[in-house]
Design a protein around this nucleic acid. Sequence first.
DNA 1: CCGATACCGTAGCGTACGTTACGGTAACGC
DNA 2: GCGTTACCGTAACGTACGCTACGGTATCGG
Lengths: 201, 201
Amino acid sequence: MARRRDVADQQRRLSAATWSVLAERGLPGLTLRAVAERAGCTTGMVLHAFADKQALLVHARELLHRRTGERADAAQAAAATPTAALRALLLQAASPTEEKREEARVWVGFLAAALADPVLADLHRSYNRRFVDRVATLVAAVRPDWSPADRATTATSLVALVEGLNALAAVDAAVYSDHAQRAALDGALARLEPPEPAANA
Amino acid sequence: MARRRDVADQQRRLSAATWSVLAERGLPGLTLRAVAERAGCTTGMVLHAFADKQALLVHARELLHRRTGERADAAQAAAATPTAALRALLLQAASPTEEKREEARVWVGFLAAALADPVLADLHRSYNRRFVDRVATLVAAVRPDWSPADRATTATSLVALVEGLNALAAVDAAVYSDHAQRAALDGALARLEPPEPAANA
DNA sequence: CCGATACCGTAGCGTACGTTACGGTAACGC
DNA sequence: GCGTTACCGTAACGTACGCTACGGTATCGG
């Protein structure tokens, strides 16, 4: 062995460069040359660290999942009740932060890329199902009286609404404004909270 | 002038070839060479009819809009009441037809492409707002007692839910099955139909 | 019946991409 | 201290893309 440089630091710098390119140029702009230029190295080193373009794509997809996952964890942890946690988890996805807009754009890009790339499609399914499970768990905590089928339907509906809002807001921020997104989620969440814990029907 | 061949027929054949390529290879596969090969001609003629790659993209985007618009018209026309029309319009978007899966995939591709192409972004905004207006009109007919703000929120929510379901179903048909999509839309539409036309609250 | 003209196929240019082969260089073992 | 070895920059190859220049061909006007 010889010349052992800081592999972890390289990986970190490449991750930062990858996300920087993704946020600025979108997924079609995520070329090996762009990542190398942003990281201050050459394509040789990038391919030495990733071996393949698809490995870079998988890494970038994991970056997106980690970002959204950490934010979801934080939103859930800050809430006291399951109802508040569910609300925080979903509303956190509809915020006017530029960081969120970046993530929404990147998410749309990966969604489109997954249509032609089976590996990315598997990743997308896995991550999305994890999100659905997260929402379904909170829904079960909020409404344990509902049937599992109803809870599952509610969870998938909420996820579809959130992702739909994010995807549409990425292109039309005027119609799908922050206010519109919050109002849409409030309306959907209203079906979970009965006005009074009285007798059913 | 000399040699006037059937321009309309050429346009029709190119449209069919364009959609065929789009459905099969997705938007990244929509190259001039692919369209030419599918239409049985060469890139020279394609560029003679479209002058530019972006003109082909715009034409393809209009094709998608026309397809979805015609289907929406048919769904609305077959319904008797505004409630049924709204339901038919939204449910029509959630059907197990392979044709619909194609359209959903193409829609996702154009959504992602709009993030980097201002022309496609304008088209997307225009078409999507037309869809929102269509839904909003039906919502206004169903619930004239609601405020315009509530009706607008409901319309954008329904559109976001439908597009989110379609986009997610394009990648994960198991979780977002036909049954799941119908159940999600039924739940969202339930908020529009009060159980009895009794007094408010 | 023939020249002019609109049409379109052929071929290729320039570019950017992923990928690879190779050489230089710096670090570790002995 | 030096040879070995891992590491990475350089350069280029092959491919596919959008696009264009040019020439052949079929069609219409006279």
